[in-house]
Design a protein around this nucleic acid. Structure first.
Lengths: 237, 237
DNA sequence: CATTCTCATCTTGTCGACAAATAAAATTCA
DNA sequence: TGAATTTTATTTGTCGACAAGATGAGAATG
């Protein structure tokens, strides 16, 4: 713009690769609450930040909008979607059901490669817990459960579960300062039990353990919300 | 382009309204199989057809891609997604579960306005059945069940259910020529029973009826597929 | 005659610019 | 002073054009 012709494009990785980069970057920032709910998103600003035209930026935003992570008001500025506390009950309901269903299906359909991936994520989660890395816990926990869902071989459940876990990440991120110290260790053990039941191809036990795990997490989040004074101030508009 | 300056834009409805028009038009054409699975989608061609630039066309395509209705290969032409017969078991599984869950929740949470909408769609379905309008049946049946899902007040379930019902529309559309004559009438009766159970707020009966209804539909589709010789030739990709 | 390389053409991905719509600021009028 | 209205400015939606990558035809070579 100002420097002239010599500066082409620094990190023009691939033709079409910039879009997914913007998409994933923004997606992570939204889920990790680096972009606060309700904060406006300026296309021109992003265009400068990623040093690319508004067109690919726009495409990434459309994708995020389709996922419900941002809300696009026509002709007005688009904003980061709010965390919908009104639908919290629906969230817990669906989350619990997906925990159960994916655990059942994983016990039925998993193969050795699935198991390897699951164990890997469980190890990462365990590491994050012992290191006291709360953000790592939240992320690796999500990956662990998503790996179980993948082993279940049902894309419909996997897709919904991913959406739920990501919404959950945002909520947990909001309350992570009060993240308890002993609960994560318990989660590690519960994960191990779930893996054992899956290996035994024991559908009913897998279901039961998943239910308990889900109930535990729901209870945890509920207690955070009721204990935290911010819960009311976060309910915007 | 050639005529000069006098022709501006004929149906420039609203600024930003063209995108959703393209989106919905293409969406319906894909679901109704007017656009065959695997058929290529040319942006320039659509640009001429809707008499607008490629930019809004592209935005609609990104949305459809996010929904999984079209598959975009980078730098290559995008195609209408295939009906995934490999995942058919997963489809039936998720469909049945959503029938059950939404019926349960509707019995718990519906209000009078929901009931009115549901009855309206049921009437439309009934009309389509008596008129022998197969395409109308498929569409109104979808709307009926989606209305029940809405009454359940859980956006996660509603969104997944919509996706499932639309995938189901494509499959039914593929086999509609063998659509049986007496089954639809039975469906009308089953729908009425489901409404009655909902009004009685009887969760367990709603669940049971939904399960039976789902099993019936799954059985129907399965019989079509096994009876139809096209089932193998349609497995493209 | 088959195979590989080259080149032309076509489609997509990206860009800069302009127009419409909205939000903000300034001005006028009661 | 305050409310209504005009003006300005910012931001989004759309456009036409160009460049990168891909597809396919035809030439060249073995």
């Amino acid at each position: 713009m100002s420097k002239g012709s010599s500066e082409r494009k620094v990190a023009q990785v691939k033709r079409g690769g910039g879009v997914s980069h913007v998409y994933e970057t923004l997606r992570n920032e939204i889920i990790d609450l680096k972009l606060a709910p309700g904060s406006p998103i300026d296309e021109t600003e992003l265009s400068e930040r990623f040093s690319m035209s508004r067109t690919p930026i726009r495409e990434a935003l459309v994708r995020l909008s389709a996922e419900g992570l941002i809300t696009a008001l026509t002709n007005r500025t688009t904003v980061v979607s709010n965390i919908d506390f009104v639908q919290l009950g629906a969230f817990f309901d669906a989350l619990t059901l997906m925990y159960r269903v994916t655990a059942r299906l994983a016990a039925q359909h998993y193969d050795e490669s699935d198991l390897a991936v699951i164990r890997e994520h469980q190890a990462s989660f365990s590491n994050a817990v012992h290191a006291g890395d709360v953000l790592g816990m939240i992320a690796t926990n999500r990956d662990f459960h998503l790996a179980i869902a993948s082993a279940g071989r049902n894309k419909y459940y996997t897709d919904l579960f991913r959406r739920l876990l990501d919404d959950g990440r945002r909520i947990l991120r909001l309350y992570y300062h009060s993240y308890d110290d002993n609960l994560p260790r318990q989660y590690v053990a519960e994960h191990d039990h779930m893996i054992s039941a899956m290996i035994a191809r024991d559908v009913e036990t897998s279901d039961r353990l998943a239910t308990e795990h889900a109930d535990q997490i729901v209870r945890q989040i509920r207690s955070y919300i009721s204990a935290d004074s911010r819960s009311t101030s976060s309910i915007t508009f």
